[in-house]
Design a binder for these strands. Structure first.
Lengths: 193, 193
DNA sequence: GGCATTTGCCTAAGGGGTTTAGGCATCCAC
DNA sequence: GTGGATGCCTAAACCCCTTAGGCAAATGCC
């Protein structure tokens, strides 16, 4: 009986593909074992647990996202950079919905701190260098961008904007435009009454 | 052996409480049966399936959210209405994280169309009546607000903004301010180059 | 109050997914 | 070739979901 050649890397990659096909929450050690035509218990020499598998897929997805973002930002600034960065999120989610969900998987703090998520956060700040924001406004803006990108993409993935005019891409473009306008003219704090 | 007095309503309410305690994805027919000190199979005379339970919790959460939103919007307009509406989402998510997740549960189209979700959508449009937007910009704005509210709340729930300055409430207030500014001066479409 | 019917909760059982323990075959180094 | 490490296996326990069929409590009718 020849060996299947399982490795953590192959399992993680296959898990990511599985996530895109059937949804991240349907990624299961059992399904993965079936895909490799191997008994379930065999995977436990490579993976600590089902949770471990999901964490690895999440880290892979964050890595891929950060890679794409770095490519997109290279040589761009200002609104150009903002739009490119925004599209990285949306395009990744559309191409790899399961992986995108994985990237949103709740990691424990240490794992998160060692993940490509911090690179993504740094790049968000880099995008904002094209605008004239100083602390703490820059942090507010980072949070706003994260919220809009994640919120829009996740509502779009859930089907919220389908079957209704105007089409989703148009709204997306207009929203990115609007964010650019807003960042260029970020309002001062409203004085307490 | 006295009867437990199970009804769909009690089960749904208890499921919602369970969701707030252990997380919506941990809401399980088994856990619910334990809570009522009843055998699992007994719940199946009241619930069609585990999916059915989750759907009912989602509908309850949407109903509660819509109710709070209606209260919040009564007698308010403009930025006042915007801020109140925004806070409904955030406050609800902070008070009832499990229910909030439930409200984001993917419903099949007919169920969604009959849910309080459509009331929420109408109220979002009502908030925008305080601003001078005509179609299709109003739709873009509806989508932007949905994205920001959902995105911010979900990142905040995931712990994204904790343990870092400035505190999350400050960012939230400033972001709502910024949205008000943006809606008041919504940019025209950028002409194609 | 007695009786029939409905209703509600139960036992039983089958199908998955997760995880651990321990065994045998395969692969590699020497 | 042989010894050891490694990789995949069987076995088994535990939890969750779901259906089928049974007994008992509640309800309604007289």
């Amino acid at each position: 009986m020849p060996r299947a050649g399982l490795t953590v890397e192959r399992l993680t990659r296959a898990g990511a593909e599985l996530a895109d096909e059937v949804g991240f929450d349907q990624v299961t050690v059992s399904a993965l074992a079936r895909r490799f035509d191997v008994k379930v218990a065999s995977l436990y020499s490579h993976l600590k647990s089902s949770q471990d598998l999901r964490t690895r897929i999440a880290l892979l997805a964050l890595e891929e996202l950060a890679g794409r973002a770095a490519d997109a930002l290279a040589g761009r600034a200002g609104k150009d950079a903002l739009a490119a960065f925004a599209n990285v999120y949306r395009d990744y989610a559309r191409e790899h919905p399961g992986r995108y969900d994985a990237a949103r998987f709740r990691l424990d703090p240490e794992t998160a701190a060692a993940s490509a998520g911090v690179r993504l956060a740094r790049m968000t700040r880099a995008v904002l260098r094209g605008y004239d924001l100083s602390e703490p406004d820059q942090t507010h803006a980072v949070r706003l961008l994260g919220s809009v990108f994640h919120g829009y993409v996740s509502l779009e993935m859930a089907g919220g904007f389908s079957h209704s005019a105007p089409d989703s891409t148009t709204s997306w473009v207009r929203i990115v435009d609007a964010l650019d306008t807003l960042l260029r003219d970020w309002p001062a704090p409203v004085p307490a009454p």
